[in-house]
Design a protein around this nucleic acid. Structure first.
Lengths: 252, 252
DNA sequence: CGATTGCCGTATCGCTGATACGACGAAGCT
DNA sequence: AGCTTCGTCGTATCAGCGATACGGCAATCG
């Protein structure tokens, strides 16, 4: 901060760097906030320190993010970007079920490597940003959809994702909160196998109790993945509703 | 605060009310803090407001709890007391497995009824008090020990508790953090059944793959529950270590 | 070349956690 | 009984926090 404080210094001009200047400052602020967050002991950061680290003053931070929560939301979004990049580099196999196992373990590794960021992303905060959370659910549903297309899913990707993610988060948060109590490295795999056993089935043939429902589910997933040009859009939509009705649990 | 501010008011004397005076003020402060916490939108409280609600001044709070974290730890402990009281009123059946199911559902109900307090107790905080967390694990292990004594546990109460509690917390926290995403009321039961299926077995006879280990586990649990007067304490201790060795997984 | 617009840094506000300090009442001693 | 000592309380205060009002300066436009 010793080289940027003399009054007559050249200002960044808006037409030269253009709107990319704001983007650069945003990036610097988010990175500084993430560093401060990782170094923090109580999981909290000070906007003063963050803006000083980024070489700007406090009002700039508030102009760009509006709020301290806005800054933290941006940090959480950046965390999601890293999370998604890891996942995209990981899940390229054609064995969707194996991808599920690898995805669970990678989730745990991400939490262990970035505990503060992980808590920011997944621990309940006041009016937390729901976007990163939702996008991770979608990522998980995408892999589960491939499982369903392979006939390896006993339920819908929607329901399976909403079962798997909370369990995964719970195990990861417990390890972060109480590492002394949950130091067993096998705990994660036991939980993973227990949850997967509840939603994944044998991928080869439909050995489910109701083969019609399983086949309808598989067709629905395949349609969602690749679509078809044999039916009109309206017909496809109606077929989708019929498949949903076939897969519905028994009326009560 | 209109009746306690004139200077010549009768002071509470230390010998009359004795140390019970401090206890009363502590209780008032903890209750005020819990009310403020439940009414808070961001899960944070101000020591000023809490001490004013309790009718004392700020230094009194700091003398009694030392710190804001000390106050929050006391609130978490009070929450554990309520939690334990609910549990003790609930789990009186002789069917330990049924108690496990009821205990899971009661945990979820507690979280839904006291979201802020629940987050204080279970969400990872900086240097959070590990006592309440540990005591709840012990409560869970006690019920699991009864399951093991009935031959209904496929693993040790220690390991089973460390699997069940994180999953239970994860599902509860996800509902608190993102109620819109996890509004399915059946999710909790699916997760519960998945985890229980991984650790609970048929309670009737030992149908485990290794009946010797299962029987050793059952005897160990029974000894922990009721003990025996047929052996000397030293003999009992040695027997306990033998049973642990029998139940150990294969050497690697 | 002067007026205008938009952004930035300085200074500030209200609030928070935490504490120093004087005042005052209750025990203890002579 | 009177004085001293001790402990606790409330008042006042400090440093740091999130958030913002405002003057000054550079870039742009007529």
């Amino acid at each position: 901060m010793s080289d940027a404080e003399y009054p007559g210094r050249p200002r960044r001009r808006r037409d030269a760097d253009g709107p990319a200047d704001d983007a650069q400052v945003r990036k610097a602020l988010v990175e500084a906030a993430e560093r401060r967050l990782a170094a923090s002991t109580d999981g909290d950061i000070a906007t003063r320190a963050v803006s000083e680290d980024a070489g700007v003053s406090q009002p700039v931070l508030y102009r760009l993010f509006g709020d301290k929560r806005g800054l933290l939301d941006a940090v959480a979004d950046a965390g999601f970007e890293r999370y998604a990049r890891r996942k995209s580099e990981l899940e390229v196999t054609d064995d969707a079920v194996a991808d599920m196992y690898a995805g669970w373990d990678d989730h745990m590794a991400f939490a262990a490597a970035n505990p503060a960021l992980y808590q920011l992303m997944f621990a309940p905060r006041a009016r937390a940003a729901t976007t990163a959370y939702k996008r991770i659910l979608e990522l998980l549903e995408a892999t589960l959809l491939r499982c369903a297309a392979a006939g390896a899913l006993a339920t819908t990707p929607h329901a399976a994702a909403r079962l798997i993610l909370p369990v995964n988060i719970g195990v990861a948060l417990s390890r972060i909160a109480q590492p002394a109590l949950f130091d067993d490295p096998g705990l994660s795999h036991v939980a993973r196998d227990a949850v997967f056993a509840a939603v994944l089935t044998e991928p080869v043939v439909t050995r489910a109790p109701d083969p019609v429902r399983a086949a309808a589910r598989q067709l629905s997933a395949q349609l969602a993945l690749t679509g078809t040009d044999r039916l009109e859009p309206a017909e496809t939509a109606l077929l989708g509703r019929w498949l949903e009705r076939i897969d519905e649990p028994a009326r009560r």
